[in-house]
Write a protein that binds this DNA or RNA. Sequence first.
DNA 1: CGAGTTGTTGACGTGTGTCAAAAGAAGTGG
DNA 2: CCACTTCTTTTGACACACGTCAACAACTCG
Lengths: 222, 222
Amino acid sequence: MRFKYLFLCTFCLDGWKPAIQASKQNIHIKKGQLIFAEGDPVKGIYFVYEGNIKVHKKWDDEKELILRFAKKGDILGHLGIGSGDIYPVSATALEAAVVCYIDMSFFESSLTANNNFVIKLMRFFADELQTSEKRMKNLVHLPVKGRVAQAIISIKNQFGVSENGFINFEPAKLDLASFAGTAYESLFRTLNDLVDEHIITLSGKSIMIKDEARLLQLVAGN
Amino acid sequence: MRFKYLFLCTFCLDGWKPAIQASKQNIHIKKGQLIFAEGDPVKGIYFVYEGNIKVHKKWDDEKELILRFAKKGDILGHLGIGSGDIYPVSATALEAAVVCYIDMSFFESSLTANNNFVIKLMRFFADELQTSEKRMKNLVHLPVKGRVAQAIISIKNQFGVSENGFINFEPAKLDLASFAGTAYESLFRTLNDLVDEHIITLSGKSIMIKDEARLLQLVAGN
DNA sequence: CGAGTTGTTGACGTGTGTCAAAAGAAGTGG
DNA sequence: CCACTTCTTTTGACACACGTCAACAACTCG
């Protein structure tokens, strides 16, 4: 997690600085707006400058699985690098955001020029794959409570906590449910359970972890 | 899928031929033997020369999720390329197998030398990630029948069918269950259902798809 | 022939998704 | 400032898919 952030930041700001400035295309996105959708042809790749974004796969209208959240410094649309020519996922801004767009052909040609970057990018993919497979296992085997725990921990690791102890990210309950791979109402009851057991505290959309040990225990074996 | 096979074959046999011959280390594996286990320190990377292998994550003793199968020409242990220093998965031979071991330090140093290879490897990772996320969505949302359908289709795509129409791979029912992310007994009943509905035919461990359209339909939206 | 492994079926309990409705919250307009 | 939508949050009740347990059949193998 830390590695991922460092890598992207480093690369977005250092290795990519010239490239980005060369083909500078900052795009402002409104809250709730789609950046790209499942099925769209792949045209380029994005870096997040500002704002949080969710990457998700649709199920049947009003039902989805959120694969990851992207925040400042993260890469977006990198699955387009694979052999497919359409995005297999959608990206939606959770709030007003700014992304930097890089044309795919330009990006690709840069790959051949900078071997070091490709290696880092490959390592990033390897880590993402590892995360994905771990999450898959958990989604298959864990009961809802464990999945919710996993979701909270994951968000905490990615966004950190602010001074007041709350996680630095306020996901809509619906998004949290989609991230945990469960139904809206189930998420609710589970959150309440966790509050009752003094494992977490809620304040509006904010979440504070009170007993991380027991939270981790719910994802036992991870 | 086809791409993956081509790529690895090409690279294993072409680009990697000299490398492999330089550090030639063919290892013979017996049926059921572990090649590496979850938690082992990463020492190297493997290419499969002969035999089918399952890559899996353990749950709680006698319960696992199979992430993928590897066959002749496939790469193995590539998750070790990421930032972690231990394998997050296990690999077990389903039958007598031969793998080619390449020391990680040697492999890594080769990366810097061959930019083209790294790019292809990165593309491979991107595709794997895409597959993984698709599978994750299906495992979360699909009922058992759909997951079994998905498992069968996936195996068919990877191994193909022989002249008699049966899929060129005979997984143990237990492995099939682990691959579909369901219980042993549930898999049976589902397979029987599929047979009753004339969607597939069974003969021992062999599976033949009789009505691919309806099988695909079960994974609707895949 | 017994003993162990693998395949098969039955019965049961429960986690959890779904539906539906109540209770707030928040805007809208008179 | 109050009725009246409309949307979100919350709780209740229900049904059923599916995992678990247990018993049994079939089949290998010593």
